[in-house]
């Protein structure tokens, strides 16, 4: 199947499609934490790097099979998400943002000094096991599971915490426990995405997972529309394509990228798709008007 695809799709486009898939997985993880549960995390790349390094080291130095490395990377990232989540998730909004930034920076500095990870030079020669079919199969599975989760009791509780934590608690929601749960699940996806990335890129360095990478992922979640799965997917697609399309403007690329972020926020402050959910579409089909939302926080 993969052989067939690489025969018919130009390597350049294939590469972009792969990166889109991996970014969707990463962004859906962050969407659970920030978009759905409303806990501002600005260190998602840190958890991604844990997954990337763990799985790469396992594959390269322990000879572990690819799937096991991938799973182990995701689990270790989830474990750290759980660990950092317990004491910090009781912090209010922007304090949490700072802690996640700080944690990701500590991880980055750790890998900069980590002998088995090749220090600042990074790791190269990671087996390129990540294939197109694998990435997109995982994307589809994760989207389905995500959609099911968000329309379930637990998913509703996540949204409720974002919307009004006190009222959520008065409804019997253990907000601390659920925030840690969202953080752990989101970190799991970050680790999984990191493992896929490492086994696709062939080589990883600590600076691949610096603050800007976390910001890029956050942009995907916010740009598409907070808390919405279609929004997050759209955001991931656009923000993976955008830098490619901006190649024509060469060294002005980041200038445009920065300006576009500002312009998009001015004209679509709640993201491109707002909080599009199934019942909005149902209502539109019934010909009734659905109000625009404005976030309360």
């Amino acid at each position: 199947m993969d052989a067939l695809i690489s025969q018919y799709i130009d390597p350049y486009y294939l590469r972009i499609l792969m990166l889109i898939g991996i970014n969707i997985i990463l962004a859906l993880g962050l969407n659970l934490i920030t978009g759905v549960t409303g806990q501002l995390s600005m260190g998602h790349a840190g958890f991604m790097s844990i997954g990337a390094y763990t799985s790469a080291i396992l594959s390269m130095q322990m000879g572990s099979p690819f799937f096991l490395s991938l799973l182990a990377g995701a689990m270790v990232a989830a474990f750290f998400g759980f660990l950092i989540g317990i004491p910090t998730l009781r912090l209010e909004g922007d304090y949490l943002a700072m802690v996640t930034i700080g944690f990701a920076e500590i991880i980055r500095v750790f890998f900069l000094n980590f002998e088995p990870g090749g220090k600042a030079v990074g790791l190269s020669g990671i087996p390129q096991n990540t294939t197109f079919v694998l990435v997109w199969t995982l994307v589809i599975i994760i989207i389905i599971l995500n959609a099911k989760l968000l329309s379930s009791r637990i998913g509703r509780a996540f949204y409720a915490i974002r919307e009004n934590e006190i009222a959520a608690e008065a409804s019997g929601i253990n907000s601390t426990r659920l925030k840690v749960l969202a953080f752990t699940a989101g970190s799991f996806l970050a680790g999984l995405g990191g493992g896929l990335y490492a086994h696709y890129m062939y080589f990883i360095r600590p600076q691949d997972f610096a603050f800007m990478k976390s910001i890029e992922l956050l942009n995907m979640v916010v740009l598409g529309g907070m808390g919405s799965i279609p929004g997050t997917i759209l955001g991931s697609v656009i923000l993976t394509l955008l830098p490619e399309m901006l190649r024509i403007v060469a060294e002005y690329r980041l200038l445009f990228y920065g300006a576009l972020l500002v312009i998009l926020m001015i004209f679509r402050p709640n993201g491109l798709l707002g909080d599009v959910r199934v019942y909005d579409i149902k209502k539109k089909l019934q010909g009734k008007k659905v109000g625009l939302w404005q976030s309360s926080n």
Partner: peptide, 17 residues
């Protein structure tokens, strides 16, 4: 203190948590 961006139905469903 409602969950403003959830539907009326979902607000009550959260109540069952």
């Amino acid at each position: 203190r409602l969950f403003n961006k959830l539907s009326v139905l979902d607000n009550v469903r959260v109540g069952s948590h």
